[in-house]
Design a protein around this nucleic acid. Structure first.
Length: 200
DNA sequence: CGAAGATAGGGTTGTCGAAA
DNA sequence: TTTCGACAACCCTATCTTCG
């Protein structure tokens, strides 16, 4: 059942690229705006007939929708709302040019609300990563070393070393970062952090 | 006010297991 | 096999909130 594919985010991306409101798209597709809203929030998984009506109205083929090969040629610029959210609902990681073919690096706009945590289980993956703190404070652990960085501070380390990001302060922390090779592609690899049921 | 997105409540449909 | 009730899922209408 295509576990990794985010139907809602994909639909929202395609709709916004075409500058259509939920209501406008709904009208063209002969469904209601609430249907579009619920699908984009992944509150329902649409029936095949509904999805087909919606994709016909965009228009986008079913295969193109799931293949994710959308832009005919990669664009150099992205509006803020076009970044692809790959966070977990608490912390926000917004990926630039998620669908760009042959992308060699990941550029992320990261936002950590107070208490947000990449997980007690350390992250480890191939590559290198670095970033600059834009605002707030972030506690970063790399291979046992802990530091709290503030606006203007930066980090750079080998991603194979176990690492963790945590906002222990009481204000949101914003970071702009890059890593290579790209660990994140939407619909494929995702971050899996320990996240021992921290709901609520 | 209108436009946009989210949401509450209900109607319809399909599936499953038990009984005839 | 068909029928019945329980249940879950999808999607509708109507309504709500937010923003300008």
């Amino acid at each position: 059942m295509e576990e990794g594919f985010d139907v809602g985010a994909r639909l929202r991306q395609l709709r916004q690229e075409r500058q259509l409101s939920q209501r406008e798209l709904a009208k063209r597709a002969q469904v209601t705006n609430s249907t579009i809203s619920l699908i984009e929030q992944n509150s329902v998984s649409p029936s095949v007939s509904s999805l087909k009506k919606i994709l016909d109205a965009l228009p986008v083929s079913i295969t193109a929708f799931f293949a994710g090969e959308e832009p005919s040629h990669p664009r150099p610029f992205y509006k803020a709302e076009e970044l692809t959210e790959i966070g977990d609902g608490v912390l926000s990681w917004r990926l630039v040019a998620a669908r760009r073919p042959d992308r060699r690096m990941s550029v992320l706009h990261e936002r950590y609300p107070p208490g947000a945590d990449s997980g007690e289980d350390m992250l480890e993956h191939d590559g290198e990563e670095g970033g600059v703190v834009i605002s707030g404070h972030i506690e970063i652990t790399v291979n046992g070393e802990v530091a709290v960085l503030s606006a203007g501070d930066a980090y750079y380390f080998d991603s194979r070393l176990p690492h963790r990001f945590r906002n222990a302060g009481d204000t949101e922390c914003m970071i702009v970062s890059a890593n290579t090779p790209p660990s994140f592609s939407d619909g494929g690899e995702v971050l899996h952090h320990g996240q021992s049921g921290t709901e609520g």
